[in-house]
Design a binder for these strands. Structure first.
Length: 232
DNA sequence: TCAACTGGCGCCCATTTATG
DNA sequence: CATAAATGGGCGCCAGTTGA
């Protein structure tokens, strides 16, 4: 929060950040700087302090989010989560992917057997890791961050195994919260409605997805109905 | 081969913060 | 206080990938 395109560019131009890891070394470095952030144009003590606080809050990060954040081709939220779940912990992933080329090749072969991951995605992941500067960046981040292992999913909730799509505006929770909650209950959250969709949770402003749900005869419910179903 | 689904993008809007 | 700039959240679209 507070570190968008504009500020990243400024930090780069000032030589304060040259890679992802530098963000997490920024406060320390700034303390020793002759021209600290709080004295620069457009910045004050308040904005500098808030930026450092926001960065500290992100030091603790789920493994899937770290992988997603690397910006690898074909590795968005979903595939990052599949990869994270396969390895189970950042230590296991680091041992498998960041030691030797031979070990990495074995790990990629295993990844290919994961349901939902195909050759294109695994190849993209492998190509990323094959670049020494990428592997270095990941190692650097792993050393700086508190990486959380993926959470186990419940198998016995009312929505376990169901495919759910959220559409329209959610009023009682953010989209991320809704998604995380649903997934922790064993549901699969998708972005598009098909015949395979079990439940569409529609808020105000829902558009084409709600129409599709009606067309396919998929169960539609409000956010409140969804919350009472999952017991929240 | 093809339906289903993901990733990535463009666009819009609300909120936050700096500035006059 | 009003305004402008920056950011994040959110939606829909669609090309490309997966898996039966």
């Amino acid at each position: 929060r507070g570190l968008g395109e504009k500020q990243v560019k400024a930090l780069w131009d000032w030589g304060l950040v040259h890679g992802p890891g530098d963000i997490f070394r920024l406060e320390e470095r700034d303390r020793q700087s002759l021209t600290p952030l709080r004295n620069r144009d457009g910045w004050g003590a308040q904005s500098a302090r808030k930026l450092f606080e926001a960065i500290e809050q992100r030091r603790k990060v789920p493994l899937a989010r770290l992988l997603f954040a690397l910006g690898m081709r074909h590795v968005g939220e979903r595939n990052a989560s599949l990869i994270a779940r396969h390895f189970g912990s950042v230590e296991t992933l680091a041992e498998a992917c960041l030691t030797t080329d031979e070990r990495r090749a074995e790990a990629m072969a295993e990844l290919l057997t994961v349901d939902g991951l195909g050759p294109i995605v695994v190849e993209a992941f492998d190509q990323f890791l094959a670049e020494p500067h990428n592997a270095d960046t990941l190692r650097d981040l792993v050393g700086l961050l508190d990486v959380q292992p993926p959470e186990a999913r419940a198998a016995d909730s009312p929505v376990a195994g169901k495919t759910v799509v959220f559409t329209g505006t959610l009023e009682r929770m953010t989209r991320d919260e809704a998604k995380a909650r649903a997934e922790s209950l064993g549901a699969k959250v998708s972005g598009s409605v098909s015949k395979k969709t079990d439940i569409v949770v529609a808020g105000p402003g829902a558009g084409s997805k709600l129409a599709k749900a009606t067309e396919f005869g998929v169960q539609v419910m409000t956010e409140d109905e969804w919350l009472s179903l999952i017991g929240g």
